[in-house]
Nucleic acid binder design. Structure first.
Length: 179
DNA sequence: TGAATGATCACG
DNA sequence: GTGATCATTCAT
């Protein structure tokens, strides 16, 4: 499953030629048209149509009136599946203290705010650097270091809410809180 | 536990 | 057009 493979990969953001490299430490999978937690479960709409397209494309959307979410499309064309990036560990210098540092990127909405990711990145391929946001191969995470858990914030999803499709790196200090 | 806050979607 | 809902966060 791609959600596991993304753990340890680097999410790289280029802001005015400043390279901000972060390691992905927590993800959630949204798998297929039947997954009630996925936006795609209620059919194809203008918002989620990118999930029905080619894999390797960003799906960025705005929710709760204040938060952006970053996903990577993983399913083949016409099969809607994506991975939500829930938390990353910064691999660049941050001016603040360590305690504040860990609070910058340990949640899906926090990391998009910190890395200045918004809907302008929707539909941008993550294997091309020209858009200022891409993914590089990173550390290989051992199976024993990957924790599976239930997904978060999807209580409306019926029997799918208890699927253990959330993955994070064991003992990493940057995974999101509610876990 | 609940407010903030606005895009999105299902109506018709 | 209207109204309900939401892959969250932070403060109470």
């Amino acid at each position: 499953m791609v959600a596991r493979e993304l753990l340890g990969c680097f999410l790289v953001r280029n802001i005015d030629d400043k390279i901000l490299k972060s390691k992905i430490v927590e993800t959630e999978a949204y798998e297929g048209p039947d997954d009630l937690a996925s936006h795609a479960s209620r059919g194809r709409t203008p918002r989620n149509e990118v999930m029905f397209g080619e894999p390797g494309i960003c799906y960025v959307y705005f929710t709760y009136g204040m938060h952006h979410m970053l996903n990577i499309v993983t399913g083949k064309k016409d099969y809607p599946a994506a991975v939500l990036i829930r938390a990353v560990e910064p691999f660049f210098a941050i001016e603040n203290k360590t305690s504040a540092r860990q609070r910058k990127t340990n949640g899906p909405a926090k990391l998009t705010k910190f890395l200045q990711i918004d809907r302008s990145f929707n539909k941008a391929p993550v294997y091309v650097k020209k858009y200022g946001l891409w993914i590089e191969n990173g550390e290989k995470i051992k199976k024993s270091e990957i924790i599976c858990a239930k997904r978060i914030g999807i209580d409306y999803a019926g029997k799918y809410k208890d699927k253990s499709w959330r993955f994070y790196i064991k003992d990493n200090n940057f995974v999101s809180r509610k876990g």
